[in-house]
């Protein structure tokens, strides 16, 4: 690993100042499970690494505020998957957090880190898209909010401006019953990078939302408001026609060694069908209770 300087700011203002001063020479360190791999393999060679874990405003935690669930940027996957509210109201996020690597990885990897890497295969992105997550971002010009769907550009690239960092992730708490699920495909059952990752939610009004990743440069969010997808009695041809449309923008890379594009597209379809079924079943069981 090439040497670098290390900063451990205590406040957000100090952090932003460091980012302004060092520009692209600075890299933010939260969990480090991705950053340190890239520091070691030489794909990143920052002159300074800024550790966010002692920033007072960025203490990990999950709180409810004004009808939203606010997840602190440095909250790790282990705490997200164990959180009672997340498990109850954002099941797909809990499921996604539970498959981000091994226990050791989940004990370090943060939600904001997972999003800011902007890996097309990131497992938490689809669920957060489905839940209409918003990123709270602080920078030299103060705070702003970015809807997650407007955050991803392509692998490794987001709409964060220089000097900005994500401080929390906000999820609107559901106002009505909803069923949701996260599903993925991997090369083995043990932890693995997803070759397709998908989240689905179905609500009582029959609105189905699907988000999927690892089949293109960024995760995609699509939806069906016709009620057909969520209706188990709807004719299969009608449902498949809608899926054709919803999944049409998937463009898996032909160069990936994890699986071929044909397989990814087929699996996307399988996961979509299974996701809709599972989310619908959860909706039914939720309404029953």
């Amino acid at each position: 690993m090439q040497p670098f300087a290390y900063a451990r700011p205590a406040s957000l203002a100090e952090t932003v100042a460091l980012l302004e001063r060092h520009g692209p020479e600075a890299r933010l360190l939260a969990g480090g499970t991705d950053l340190i791999i890239r520091l070691r393999d030489g794909t990143l060679t920052p002159s300074i690494v800024v550790d966010l874990k002692r920033v007072a405003e960025l203490r990990p935690g999950i709180r409810e505020r004004d009808g939203r669930l606010v997840i602190g940027a440095t909250t790790v996957m282990t705490d997200i998957m164990a959180n009672a509210v997340v498990r109850r109201d954002f099941a797909a996020l809990a499921e996604a957090a539970a498959v981000v690597g091994s226990v050791q990885i989940r004990n370090r990897a943060t939600l904001a880190g997972n999003l800011c890497n902007a890996s097309p295969a990131a497992d938490t992105s689809p669920s957060l898209l489905v839940y209409d997550a918003t990123l709270v971002v602080t920078g030299p010009d103060g705070e702003r909010r970015i809807p997650l769907d407007a955050f991803f550009v392509r692998s490794g690239v987001t709409t964060l401006a220089h000097g900005e960092l994500v401080t929390s992730i906000e999820l609107p708490l559901p106002t009505a019953a909803r069923g949701s699920v996260h599903l993925r495909r991997t090369r083995r059952r043990g932890h693995d990078l997803a070759s397709v990752t998908l989240a689905c939610s179905v609500d009582g009004a029959g609105i189905t939302r699907l988000a999927y990743g690892s089949v293109g440069p960024r995760p995609l969010l699509v939806g069906d408001e016709s009620g057909v997808l969520a209706d188990p009695a709807a004719p299969e041809a009608a449902r498949e026609a809608i899926l054709d449309r919803l999944l049409a923008d998937a463009r898996p890379s032909p160069r990936s060694m994890r699986s071929g594009p044909d397989y990814r597209l087929a699996m996307l379809r399988v996961l979509a069908r299974r996701g809709i079924r599972a989310a619908s079943e959860r909706l039914v069981s939720r309404r029953a209770t």
């Binding site: 451990r8 480090g32 340190i36 791999i37 690494v49 550790d51 990885i105 004990n107």
Partner: peptide, 15 residues
């Protein structure tokens, strides 16, 4: 209290 892969943790982080 939590397991980590110590290859992915900087020593300074554990201060």
């Amino acid at each position: 209290g939590r397991t980590v892969d110590s290859c992915l943790v900087l020593a300074v982080e554990v201060d």
